[in-house]
């Protein structure tokens, strides 16, 4: 190949495919065994981490937004609803932590929709791996963001005077419950991410679901102050159960009924929306 050398000399960056080099990578090797379900999911989770590394801006949603929420509501409602912002914070911080993290779950749907739009999921869907792995891995990545958001809020809360009676164990269990629910709830968004046409419509639907779910709950005020029909909704709202559980464990107590409901809701979300998601994922 005489012209290979001349071209290379003139412009070293020009690529000239070489038959020998290609031959070495094209020789069929032994096919490795297919990775386990967990292994494949973790590998997809690793992809989510790499994306955070390369596009750190995406952490803005999970840091700045929660900080603003805590500051805004503590000082907005603190004086009116309790004697002082500091008192209100003891009641309110677990609720705002839940609200912020539950709101962030919608980015799972937005992210999936963007990935599909770009075409990368076509490659993932032709890989011979456990089918839900790509989505489970994606949610694993999101779970890290949920934990980060919860820690940021906790930090701001502590700085403003939040003093949880449950101590480290209580707070950790609270965040644990929150992460379990958020993981389960993310499957709602993978489903919408798959069926809706654009990122914008995913955002639109999320807002319609998330606003009533987070505001018509016990996050901001005690449900006993609400009219009866609203109390009925607030009572069955999974966010109410979640907030009640988290508040209880952070205060060093426990609310077994709320926690049971919360776990039931979580299992329900994974079962129903996980199934719907996989059905859609397999037959696009």
């Amino acid at each position: 190949m005489s012209d290979t050398t001349t071209t290379t000399e003139r412009a070293p960056s020009v690529y000239v495919p070489s038959a020998e080099a290609l031959a070495t990578v094209l020789a069929p090797g032994a096919r490795p065994a297919r990775p386990s379900a967990l292994g494949a999911s973790l590998t997809f989770g690793w992809r989510a981490l790499l994306k955070i590394k390369h596009v750190p801006e995406q952490l803005f949603d999970v840091t700045a937004f929660p900080i603003i929420m805590v500051l805004m509501f503590t000082y907005l409602f603190g004086g009116a609803l309790a004697d002082s912002p500091r008192d209100y914070l003891q009641f309110f911080l677990p609720g705002i932590m839940v609200t912020s993290v539950v709101m962030i779950t919608m980015y799972t749907g937005v992210g999936l929709n963007t990935d599909i739009e770009k075409g990368i999921f076509d490659r993932f869907r032709t890989l011979p791996v456990w089918r839900p792995a790509a989505l489970v891995g994606m949610i694993f990545g999101d779970v890290l963001r949920y934990i980060l958001a919860a820690l940021v809020i906790l930090g701001v809360g502590l700085a403003l005077g939040f003093r949880p009676a449950g101590g480290v164990v209580g707070v950790a269990s609270g965040i644990g419950l929150l992460v379990i629910f958020s993981f389960a709830f993310s499957w709602v968004w993978t489903f919408f991410g798959l069926i809706l046409r654009s990122e914008k419509s995913v955002m639109g639907v999320s807002m319609m679901v998330l606003f009533p779910l987070t505001f018509l709950s016990n996050v901001f005020v005690e449900p006993s102050t609400m009219p009866g029909w609203l109390q009925a909704f607030v009572k069955v709202n999974p966010v109410t159960q979640l907030v009640a559980s988290v508040r209880a464990v952070m205060a060093g107590e426990s609310d077994p009924s709320a926690t049971m409901w919360l776990l039931a809701w979580s299992a329900g979300f994974v079962l129903v929306f996980g199934t719907l998601t996989m059905y859609k994922y397999n037959r696009r």
Partner: peptide, 23 residues
Amino acid sequence: QYASVDEDLTGTENLVLLARLLG
């Protein structure tokens, strides 16, 4: 026809990711 690797990742990361998924 369109993106079939992840544009946010590097060349190496993309190939390692897929190679791992292939086992």
